[in-house]
Design a protein around this nucleic acid. Sequence first.
DNA 1: TTGCAATAGTTTCGAGTCGCTACTATTCTA
DNA 2: TAGAATAGTAGCGACTCGAAACTATTGCAA
Lengths: 179, 179
Amino acid sequence: MPQRIRALIERLAKLSEAEDWAEDLNPAQMTALTYLDRANRFSRAPSHVAAYSGSTRGTVSQTLRALERKGLVTEFRSESDRRSISFEVTESGHALASAQKMLDQVLTALPPESAAALELGLDTVLRDLITARGGKAFGICRTCRHHLKLGAGGYCQLLAVNLQPAETGQICHEYETAG
Amino acid sequence: MPQRIRALIERLAKLSEAEDWAEDLNPAQMTALTYLDRANRFSRAPSHVAAYSGSTRGTVSQTLRALERKGLVTEFRSESDRRSISFEVTESGHALASAQKMLDQVLTALPPESAAALELGLDTVLRDLITARGGKAFGICRTCRHHLKLGAGGYCQLLAVNLQPAETGQICHEYETAG
DNA sequence: TTGCAATAGTTTCGAGTCGCTACTATTCTA
DNA sequence: TAGAATAGTAGCGACTCGAAACTATTGCAA
């Protein structure tokens, strides 16, 4: 049973990634782009992309350069730490990242409760797997243990910054489960 | 919501495939090996592996040669059609194919009803996606429209052959949904 | 303060993958 | 029986990925 589920996951992923080529992006580039599109401003450095995608800084460096060449992301060097770089997704990058794929259509056609169950199940499995391997989880800001609700927006106790409402729904590399 | 589910699937697959390297196999080789390990005797040709894994015959040819070099599969040329080749998984190949991965452990730890829901959901999504793309589904023999129950084993109306009990639980490349 | 370690990112290189095209061999078909 | 179709292989070229070495910057500790 678990092996069948694993086979299903791997096959689905492969089929889904096969579509990336249609956009002139390889799967690694598409993963980086969609990640950057959903990550908050503290989580858009090459090393964060590397940690998220389970790759290395060197490889990600090439991937991001390709995305920049194609005008999908823009590089911003930090003022405070001149070693670090943050990437912004451009308008055309955002359009590509949020383009609907065939898998999305199929998922949308699913009964809502099935889709919800699927998402919950997969999310649980992913977090368990990451915990077992000792990696970073990369969760949604507002569900993090360091998050405080503050009016419409929020406050991060770890980074000691105020958060815009929209930011609290983005991915953060510092995420830790509330439990 | 669908995009999040897709991201979960792709991330899980990548994490899972990262483990393949530990066995000295790349993901493509592992996919081919586990497929061959679960496929019935009519479904173990290079072209079947190619269709299953969404690759090409040429690429799969290389993959299978690598598996044979490592002693995980053995080649058998057909008597009836001298163009075709069928691959058998060796004992060590079977051991590798059925080795438990971390993802399997995590899945096993899941409440049974959650696991069942997950499998059902993923299976539905995969079949829908394959249908939308016009590919072959590759399902379990005994649930196929051409399958007839016959005593302990079965009978395939398409290939006109009797089936051993164990065979009816294997993957067939001729599979078609009963509905 | 100064020097060493740690961190962020890049570059280069080599092994390996993948798909495409062209090819052989065999079987089907009209 | 000739030509089309099918099964598989070979070789090439583009590309990917990760490892190791490198630069630049920052943190830390004596």
